[in-house]
Design a protein around this nucleic acid. Sequence first.
DNA 1: ACAAAAGTGTTTTCCATACACCCATGT
DNA 2: ACATGGGTGTATGGAAAACACTTTTGT
Lengths: 225, 225
Amino acid sequence: MDGFAVAVDLVMLTIRDEGLCALLVRRGLPPYPGRWALPGGFVRPDEDLDAAAVRELREETGMDAGTGHLEQLGSYGHPRRDPRGRVVTVAYLALLPDLPAPVAGTDAAHAAWRPVDGHRRLAFDHDRILAEGVERARAKLEYTPLATAFCGPEFTVAELRAVYETVWGAPLDPRNFHRKATSTDGFLAATGGTTEGERGRPARLYRRGDATVLYPPLLRPDPAG
Amino acid sequence: MDGFAVAVDLVMLTIRDEGLCALLVRRGLPPYPGRWALPGGFVRPDEDLDAAAVRELREETGMDAGTGHLEQLGSYGHPRRDPRGRVVTVAYLALLPDLPAPVAGTDAAHAAWRPVDGHRRLAFDHDRILAEGVERARAKLEYTPLATAFCGPEFTVAELRAVYETVWGAPLDPRNFHRKATSTDGFLAATGGTTEGERGRPARLYRRGDATVLYPPLLRPDPAG
DNA sequence: ACAAAAGTGTTTTCCATACACCCATGT
DNA sequence: ACATGGGTGTATGGAAAACACTTTTGT
């Protein structure tokens, strides 16, 4: 009855020049030596699941909680998903701004941000977990303000639109997006500042608002065509 | 590292005369003797999480998989959520048609369908799990055809509308609901049959269609007013 | 002056609502 | 005939898509 190990694995997503990227680590030891895997680790004996996820996030990125977004994704517990024994993993999804900070000085020496598309054959059942994390992120942009988690503390409407376009992989009309984003109650809070030294007219800066859901939602273009 | 027990708990929802109900069991043994709790049990050493949930569902209701709907809800693992030791539970959400079959002959002798509203002080952290299950169900009716899981194999549009009204707790316009439900592609498949012996004009019978998501969604009345 | 990007206005189209109305059955 | 619930048609208001246009900066 008590023979289970419980782990936490993280699908950490951010947006970089290459598009939507996930943080992956290259495994050194068996099982799956040399393969890319999601970062993660075992839950400690007196640690809550959420606390273990926050700890892993900090170990991998140096981020203090409060930046970005962290939520539980799902649990995976096939009896033979880990050849070492019976390991149930609780996966978490993290949405993060592009970190100028390096990923170093930790046990994540072999970590790298890699585009989520065109990735296959991760260790364990991590392909499936990564795919479900990406799909969760895509869906959640529609009806929550989580796209702001990919941005820094202050951002422009155009930056926010770029987040949507990258995650959804589809272009959006800048004018209609602007109107919709700025008119949806609680989505954005103007800081009063503007950008400087960029080409074109300066853009107003915003922080994320206090809404937890977007109503009405920002629906992505019809997936069925 | 291997000192965890893993359990599966079920939020089983159905619609009865009293409204939206969950199956609860009254605990006989400590901890929490005499308190209502979600049905559940430990995952077996060589059993997948989903398989454990299917097994529990069958033990409690006698249902074979395929009826209704079963999905993972989330995992809960606070170090002291169970006084007996370190137990991580994986909660599942089941949506079921109203079962004429009794809930008997099993270890669920003290099980009962109880309205989800006005319930507090379940054992363990089950209040929270139940609340999250109900909210998941409410949200999923919007953009998936899962309302059909509450109905029998064949049902009328009015029965389906009653499901929405019960789960959302709000009245819907019968005419507009009818048009929307029958025109949303893949939601419903007409069987050709009709009801008989009821008051009023006979209603056409439908089965659930093959769509997995509803596009566009059936949005519930604005929660913000 | 021109290019570039931000932001606004306007038109059209679509969809949700509201509700009048007809249909098919039981009593 | 009438009540009851199933199902269709239609007017209207509001939001989304499409796009012309103005604003404000850098070069």
